[in-house]
Amino acid sequence: MMATVKQQNLNDTPPIINPTKFVVWLLIVASVMLFASFTSAYIVRRGEGNWLLFDIPSLFAYSTVIVVLSSAAIQWAYRAAKRDELGQVKISLLVTLLLGVAFCISQWLGWKALVANNVHFVGNPSESFFYVISGVHLAHMVGGMIFLLVVIGKALNSNVHKKNILSLNLCVTYWHFLGAAWIYLYFFLLLNR
């Protein structure tokens, strides 16, 4: 994903944590702050009244289940890679990708259900917020899937194994973050109506 400086001298002090890993963690921190800004804006705005209530379609609950399953799948891939079971790595990564696609479709259908329920993006802020929060999460999901595709490409070339696990490791971290973020957002939206 990114070029790091080659260790130019054997005597150089090795980094404390792998810098790339650290970078991914910091990116996650930035995303957390973005979602925090939306959810806190949501709460502040809700406190001011004139807040329309609507039911969240059950499709979003399915999405939540799908996201949990996909996290399990990618964890399976990670464990398989650690044990150098390359076939399992490929299968489990593809399963993860499929679940990711399923999540996106489920979210899309969820929005359609909302529209059918007469809940529109342009309307009361409670409605707009729902779309914005789930939409920004979906954008993160799309980014995650591109990352996943890169890793799958490597895995299909049998390039992901015990000794070359960094990219998968990063992808797992990010994927779990996506799952956790959605679960948090789902319950946040469910409980703070």
Partner: peptide, 25 residues
């Protein structure tokens, strides 16, 4: 910067929605 710029991004996105899509944040 890491903790505060994403918040400005959030604020900016909502402003863009208000300007271009007709929401009322």
């Amino acid at each position: 910067g890491l903790l505060s710029f994403p918040v400005l991004l959030g604020a900016g996105l909502l402003l863009i929605f208000d300007r271009s899509f007709g929401t009322s944040f």
